[in-house]
């Protein structure tokens, strides 16, 4: 003999809650260029190369596409969709935040063709010396911390526009450590070395694309030592 369930309403409530979860995570997983809607970031050579490639491809298909018009059109479409999606998700935000069910899967949507490498240098007796270069096994000052995946993520962001304050604060934080670790140093310099990734043919031919430095900041160390005092 089967007994009726103690709470006959529960299977229905559970089914409704699971359906709501499926709906919430499904909607949140809809693609969106969130985080990429920064017009200054679109000026990056990687993004520009991508737009060039798509304009060329569409033209090769016989579509009369102008490069600048394509960029403007994509900006409008991206912004409209991002705003519409944000409005759709707004009532569900408490669920995403409280239950950790956010769906942010914009992973390697495009390779960074002009990646930047963090370079830290100290100035000793008037000459600059590199003490940390990202992924260089010989120059690893603070590497134990800076090479951790969470710091990699932060450093990657700071090579893009829009992170000026955090980038400056990172400089101050590193300068305090440089003042302690390099007693003869007068300055710490932070900058990114941007270099186009060589194509397979260029690697085979030994061609090294030129390096350009960006977002340089110098921090004077003497005053920090005085502060230690």
């Amino acid at each position: 003999m089967t007994h009726p369930p103690a709470r006959p309403w529960w299977p229905h409530v559970r089914a409704a809650l699971v359906a709501a979860h499926v709906l919430a995570v499904g909607v949140a997983a809809l693609p969106a260029p969130e985080g990429g809607m920064n017009r200054a970031a679109w000026a990056d050579p990687t993004v520009q190369a991508e737009l060039d490639a798509w304009a060329g491809r569409l033209r090769s298909l016989g579509l009369p596409v102008e490069r600048a018009a394509l960029e403007d059109h994509l900006w409008v479409v991206g912004r409209t969709w991002t705003q519409a999606r944000a409005a759709l998700l707004r009532p569900l935000r408490p669920y995403y935040r409280g239950a950790g069910t956010n769906q942010s899967w914009r992973m390697f949507v495009a390779p960074h063709r002009f990646p930047a490498r963090l370079v830290l240098s100290v100035r000793e007796d008037g000459a600059w010396r590199d003490v940390y270069v990202e992924r260089d096994p010989q120059r690893r000052w603070m590497g134990r911390q800076l090479d951790h995946d969470r710091f990699r993520s932060a450093i990657f962001r700071y090579s893009w526009p829009g992170y000026g304050r955090a980038w400056a604060e990172l400089g101050q934080w590193l300068a305090l450590r440089a003042a302690r670790d390099f007693p003869r140093a007068s300055h710490l310099r932070l900058r990114f070395a941007r270099q186009r990734s060589p194509s397979p043919a260029e690697v085979r031919a030994g061609v090294e694309p030129p390096v350009r430095f960006l977002r340089a900041q110098e921090v004077e160390l003497a005053s920090l030592r005085e502060g230690d005092g």
Partner: peptide
């Protein structure tokens, strides 16, 4: 969801 969402955003040429 993770794979499908990630794949559908890989729009690079």
């Amino acid at each position: 969801l993770m794979y499908a969402s990630s794949g559908s955003q890989k729009l690079s040429s």
